[in-house]
Design a protein around this nucleic acid. Sequence first.
DNA 1: ATGAAAGCGCTAACAT
DNA 2: ATGTTAGCGCTTTCAT
Lengths: 332, 332
Amino acid sequence: MATLKDVADLAGVSVKTVSNVVNGYDFVKPENRRRVEDALTATGYRPNVGARNLRRGRTGFIALVVPELSIPYFGELAGGIIAAAQRHDWSVLIEQTLGARDRERDAVGALGPHMVDGAIVSPQAIEAADLAGMAPRVPVVLLGEHPLALPLDHVGIDNVDAAYTAVRHLLDIGRRRIAAIGQHPTRGTATQRLAGYRQALTEAGLAVRPELVAPALRYHYSDGAEAMARLLELPEPPDAVFCFNDMLALGAIRAAADGGHQVPDDVAIVGFDNAELSAYSLPSLTTIAPDKAALARAAVDLVHRRAGISEQFAPEEVRIPFTLEIRESTTA
Amino acid sequence: MATLKDVADLAGVSVKTVSNVVNGYDFVKPENRRRVEDALTATGYRPNVGARNLRRGRTGFIALVVPELSIPYFGELAGGIIAAAQRHDWSVLIEQTLGARDRERDAVGALGPHMVDGAIVSPQAIEAADLAGMAPRVPVVLLGEHPLALPLDHVGIDNVDAAYTAVRHLLDIGRRRIAAIGQHPTRGTATQRLAGYRQALTEAGLAVRPELVAPALRYHYSDGAEAMARLLELPEPPDAVFCFNDMLALGAIRAAADGGHQVPDDVAIVGFDNAELSAYSLPSLTTIAPDKAALARAAVDLVHRRAGISEQFAPEEVRIPFTLEIRESTTA
DNA sequence: ATGAAAGCGCTAACAT
DNA sequence: ATGTTAGCGCTTTCAT
């Protein structure tokens, strides 16, 4: 493997000159530049990123900590983050926690400044106490959830408002017995979405019925299907359901069909996340659509600003816009 | 951030001794060991992985090069690979190529031994010529596609056999005008799946009709929907379709419904990949199910064996088993 | 058993 | 405009 010195020797110049050419420093005598470039191709030189970073005091990596890549939402998000990171010359290291609190703790704990220049974390179960001990040694930006009392940067949409918008839509199309699927003991977003749900109902003069609020543990298709099956067995089943993510919603649609219920005629369904699939399902899914590209870009840019040597700044709260995509699951 | 030297100074020993303790070298005087351990905790020392790797000549990373994480199949695969890599103390770096040939070339080309200890690549468009020039400087294992004439390790299922199995199933349920969606000019798997399709038809004494073989560019939902719409406009539309992945199949189901055709009564549909969703779609999707966990494990283990300093061995071809999951899209 | 010191490949003062 | 050189933090001979 050719080193800078090999190239310099071959070109008959110093390493400095080679370094200048490699790093795009402008003031190099054309003659020398040519010789260096020739030597570069002749040797097939590749910079040793590790050495460069050791010297520069950066690693060239950021970590992305998510529950599970097999969840379409996180797959899409990760894709966006990789793309956004590229523009800052960052490679993305992905860690999966499966939403387990100890694995989240480990993942964040292992984030030495030597491993990565920063991290984007989508926490699921981690709590303030877990992070209190370990001052983050690198910039950490929270994405989506923000269950922590810690002063960390956060990028996300307004979950209360989004949930309110979703339920408001169900009210607007005349539904009155509106259920929710996705209640969760530790997820902050679940709490917020529930709050938005409550707010919309209350504002419409409707009671929030506990039997219509269904919990979900993992937010997978099966959880949505099971919750829906139970809701439809109620003496007075709901005429609409607001699901806290698209997988729950798709599972719910499936269960409704299995039970012989028409969507949306008998029961309208709204999801959350706008997974690519939701435009193609049968029926297609009305859902809250966060601007995922913006989410990814904002998170990466925030890590970048923090990682910069510049001055400190107070933790930031970045709100990303969302829209409501109205599709067949709520329009006859 | 404390360095080895800081710890050594504090403990009153040399860096060598500290290094010995940190790396679990046994012969250290108990007295010194204690003092070093105290200094270690006092300073909160964390080894600089970059410096260590620079010295050791390994990086602790492997790269995973895939077209797009937002494709459920690759999301699920990536999840499995991260899990498998963990057992070898490897972190996974993910690169997206969007299936573009030049980006694949760049991604593979950037794979210096300084960046990663090895790589798992799911090529889509790259060709032998692209790799001919650059001898892979780190172990590269091909996953899925193997379009190259190069002697590289490969892990995958038998695509011809899988396609044959899928089409055979359609024949078994009595279909005779069987179409295929997913023909592609450069993808090796497309060619192989087409071969299996042909083989099954021919064996059944049926002609392969060119108008029933539809191309697809990106294998996304929309491609499947468009191809299906066109097939259904034929004077004699197909009574079954074999799609080269689940997204195409789900898009096809959508298009069939839009055109007022019943699945599976009017047209049966088989997919490929067994994305988690296919068990929950309406109708649920019959599909070829590769053992994804085995695929991931085999690929990582192969990289690990190659990366070991041990002897050379001939390029390996690892065949992973698959099953046919029969669901509603082919059973009335 | 431990210390001293070289050097992995690179960048950036500093010098010219 | 380019050469010289000191380190980035670590591991590892080579001494002792």
